[in-house]
Every structure is written in C-alpha cells, then in structure tokens.
C-alpha cells in the first residue's frame, strides 16, 4: 500500500538520529540518569526481597512542608512599609512548601512506581525483542518475497499499522479473551495474566513497525551488494543473510531507537487491560489521593527518564556498530 511503500521520509529519519536529549547540561543529564538507574535497580532488588517501604521516610519532608507553609503565612501577614517585599518572599516560601510537599508525596509512593516501572521495562523489552524475531522474516518477505509472501506480509503490516494499538489490545483481551490461555502463568517476571496478553499485543504491533524500518533499511542497501554476493557464489538467501542484512540492520538502528521509545510510551496502554505497569500504579495512586497534578507530573518524569536513557543507550549502540567510513545516513 502506497503509504508504507514510501521511504521513511528524511524528516522522520533525522528525528530518529537526533536522539532526544535536553539542550545543554550533558554531564548533568548523565549524572541524573546514573542516579536514577542506581536507585531503580536497588529499589527493584529490595522489592524482590519483599521490602516495599520507602528508603527515605516522607515524615521529615511533610514536617518541612508544614513548617514552610506556616512561615509563609506569617511572612505574608507582614504589613507596613515592607508589605510588598514580604508578599514576594512569602510567594517563594509557599512555593518551597509545595516542593517539600511534592517530595514527601513522591518518597511515599516511589516504591509502587518502581514496581510499575519494572513491568513497563519488561513489557517494552519483551515486545521489541519478540517483535524483532517476527519483523526480520516479515521484512525480508516484503523485499525479496514472491507475490504471495509479499502480499501477506504487506497485509499484516498495513492492518496493524492502520489500527490503534489500544483497539488491538481490546481485540486480544476483551474480544478473544486471550488471557484464558495464560492461566497457569502467574508470578515470575510477569505477575498477572493480563501482562502476557500485553506482551502478545506489543509483539504483534511492534513487529509490523519494525518490519517497516528494516524494509526501508534493506532497500537502502545498494542492489549491487546482492549481485556481488551472488557473483562470489553465495545463494540468494546466503547473500541476504551474510551481506545485505548485516548492512541493513545497521541502517535500521535509528528506526529501532524510535520503536523503543514508542514502546516505552505506549506500553502505558496496557493499563487499560489491567496490567499493573507504571501508568496503572500512578493512576491508582492519583485516584486514591486526588493529587492528580503531583502524581501525573511524577510519572511523566519517570517516562522521560526511561525514554532519554533509551535514546542515549541506542546512540551508543549506533556508534559502536558503525562501519568506519560508512556514515549512517542523514547526518547533516
């Protein structure tokens, strides 16, 4: 179908290459990322061992918040010639108090968010790896297949890319009641049956998108490469396997980075089929405490940290596997 036969437009590719990072403060970003991951890993280990209390008690922050709030009220009440200045100072003090309140709230709920983040990470990695397993043959079929295999691969890709992921999860979970097949599989990496359904959904979905990235990467490998491989005496399949794929998969890395980021963010949709991942936890806490702004803001920071880590990691991978002298394209 025309929409996907088109090459990934340059703009999209540039987007993949740009590798999201916040402007300025590279070392600050690295330090923050390292601290985040150190905390997350220790937190996961603690949860694994059954310790789900916060590392830092929230009490002191609450006390601080209240203290600051009281001070702010007193400053605010100052009259006389200094009333204007006092209002400004009080404004800052109220804001400090809010920050302390936010910190108290955060520390209290960080263990639950870490638990959710674990599922988010597992769902993402499972989805992208299992998706890759399907995507490689799918993309090879799209580029080198006969009429029938090409048509089937195309139909799969277009159907999946033409419908929302949420509708796909609905089909699997509510429509096909897929969870009945995973009854025995609770505990371990994926607590809850629904998480297995989510993995199936993400795999199906991601395979189609990855197939498109890999297809356009394969097509960007010069046709002469396969001809030369055949000339050396390799079979067609061997030529694809040993010459075209090793080059094409490298070109696919920017697309792969996009896909990883996409899965991290869209794994949040698993919440709608009862998977207790990151967003689910945040939403539950927000609903119970009615502190929507704080909780959604905090969970946004979590996702941001995951996304920025993923792009930083993928940029590293890209540099590591780069072929000397063969710049992966579109660096302007």
């Amino acid at each position: 179908m025309s929409a996907s036969e088109r090459d990934q437009p340059a703009a999209r590719r540039a987007l993949g290459r740009a590798g999201e990072s916040l402007p300025g403060g590279r070392t600050v970003g690295l330090a923050a990322g390292a601290a985040f991951w150190a905390w997350l890993v220790v937190r996961w280990a603690a949860l694994w061992l059954g310790y789900d209390e916060p590392f830092v008690p929230s009490g002191p922050f609450e006390a601080l918040a209240e203290g600051l709030h009281d001070d702010a009220r007193i400053i605010d009440a100052t009259g006389g010639p200094l009333a204007g200045a006092a209002d400004v100072v009080a404004g800052f003090w109220f804001w400090f108090s809010d920050v302390a309140r936010f910190l108290a709230f955060s520390t209290e709920h960080l263990p639950a968010l870490a638990r959710g983040a674990w599922l988010t990470v597992v769902l993402t990695i499972a989805g992208i790896l299992l998706g890759l397993v399907i995507a490689v043959p799918l993309s090879v079929a799209r580029v080198y297949g006969g009429r029938l295999t090409r048509g089937l691969a195309l139909a799969y890709v277009e159907l999946v890319r033409g419908t929302p992921l949420l509708a796909q999860l609905f089909v699997l979970y509510f429509g096909l009641n897929l969870s009945q097949y995973f009854r025995g599989l609770t505990g371990g990496l994926l607590p809850g049956i629904a998480a297995w359904v989510a993995v199936v959904g993400f795999t199906i979905n991601s395979a189609a998108y990855q197939a498109e990235y890999i297809r356009s990467a394969l097509e960007s490998v010069d046709v002469g490469q396969l001809t030369a491989a055949r000339a050396v005496g390799l079979s067609r399949l061997e030529g694809i396997r040993y010459v075209v794929l090793p080059q094409g998969l490298r070109y696919a890395i920017p697309g792969w980075t996009n896909e990883l980021v996409y899965l991290i963010k869209y794994s949040s949709l698993a919440a709608f089929i009862t998977v207790a991942e990151l967003f689910f936890q945040a939403d539950r806490i927000a609903g119970n405490t009615f502190r929507y702004i704080d909780m959604y803001g905090l969970v946004a920071l979590f996702y941001l940290a995951l996304v920025l880590s993923a792009t930083a990691f993928m940029n590293r991978v890209e540099r590591r596997v780069a072929i000397p002298g063969l710049g992966v394209d579109s660096e302007r």
Binding site: L22, V261, Y266, S268, A271, A300, L304, V307
Partner: peptide, 10 residues
C-alpha cells in the same frame, strides 16, 4: 523533548 518523551496517555 518533554512532549515527545511523555506518553500521550499521561
């Protein structure tokens, strides 16, 4: 970066 790094659900 903030808008592209946050799930649309959030």
């Amino acid at each position: 970066v903030l808008l592209r790094g946050t799930p649309i659900l959030v």
